[in-house]
Design a protein around this nucleic acid. Sequence first.
DNA 1: CGTACCTTTGAAGTAAGTCAACCGTCGTGG
DNA 2: CCACGACGGTTGACTTACTTCAAAGGTACG
Lengths: 228, 228
Amino acid sequence: MHTETLPFHAPAARRMVSVPPPRRATATVGDLFDVMGVPMQFARNEEVYGAGEPADYFYKVKSGCVRTYTVSADGRRQIGSFYLPGDVFGFEAGDIHSLSAEAIVSGTVQVVKRAALTARAAGDASVARLLLDLTCGELRRAQDHIGLLVRSAAERVAGFLLALAKREGSATEVVLPMSRQDIADYLGLTIETVSRTLTQLESTATIALPSARRVVLRNAAALRGLAA
Amino acid sequence: MHTETLPFHAPAARRMVSVPPPRRATATVGDLFDVMGVPMQFARNEEVYGAGEPADYFYKVKSGCVRTYTVSADGRRQIGSFYLPGDVFGFEAGDIHSLSAEAIVSGTVQVVKRAALTARAAGDASVARLLLDLTCGELRRAQDHIGLLVRSAAERVAGFLLALAKREGSATEVVLPMSRQDIADYLGLTIETVSRTLTQLESTATIALPSARRVVLRNAAALRGLAA
DNA sequence: CGTACCTTTGAAGTAAGTCAACCGTCGTGG
DNA sequence: CCACGACGGTTGACTTACTTCAAAGGTACG
């Protein structure tokens, strides 16, 4: 049930890491991904799936970080979401992926056949509920994203930092797995504006930047005031 | 099952229109809202539900038009979606509404108890599937919205007009049920920018504006080029 | 017929984008 | 071991698109 043919083209077998022992005992729905899935490794910038491909699998980040994105006709890239360890992704509003997914840093992703889950959902209302909840989570994510995109650059960056801190479980420090360009394409800004905004937040002692990828939230209240 | 106490405060009974005869015969899931729901009338600008209230009901527009929106701390209003006849709304990522809903023009909305639907979903996989599909539709809507918000004013307006034309089923003309302010708050622009953009599209013969609320798409190809 | 709201238009200001150069870090190879 | 090159990030000068403030039509409704 969980070692069927995988979606990935050439070196699928190579990338598989230790297949877990087939536990048949029912686990809580939250563990379904771990029980039913197959772990796969992805290198930095490697594609997990592409827009236009059939959405035959769901994914859960075990380690690393994943971005989903679209590229419009004129070449602009819009990042849909970042997924951190524990996050589930691959949900789309249909049978075809409308976004592509890539690993931001190399890591491991648990892969579950979508048909296996939906089949279980037909007989098990708690699994159906899980699918609905995960989709609702994705919806909330999208709505929060909309909330960010209608604000000023400083507000967008502040909101982004706060959201990331919350997800990383830290109230004082954020480690950015993604580049400035990734942040810019997520927030609908240019890389220069993101950089300038961060340095300006630093100059007002709202944050500190011990390195480019580490942000210390020195004045979370001020950030929250910005994010409004 | 479908004449239980309604969510609305004072004049609920007054606003109810002809309760449909209780058909028990199973209908297709698409009709569930018509079968299970109670029709209610809403006047222009009347609230259907408010942000923060429990999301105990789902809604389907029978006539008129509904907007959902949030108001941020600094007073800016962001419109989440417009719902036209046939559209279902009230889905949220949780048990509490995070957006408010108002009628844009007076019309009728079919109201269904959420608990009634989720109860049925527990035993009927097709109903569970319906709930998932409706949530997926909402997700697609949000993602399309994100796609609009990262573009230039002309691109946003062009994309908005095309999307509305498609939903209204016309390739050549759009009737706008909403004000310029509504459009502005949906697209993350000011009312002046929306107005200017429309007049500029008219001056290039891309659209015609026989009246403020009617838009004739004279050059849909050019619009599509803008919307990219 | 009048009033209130919606829409359009104009002029000036500003936030973010664009173009370009520079800096720091890391990894590689001479 | 140092030098180089590639990449990611920062900073500066200038441009532009959108906002803001203000006022003048239009349109609909009492």
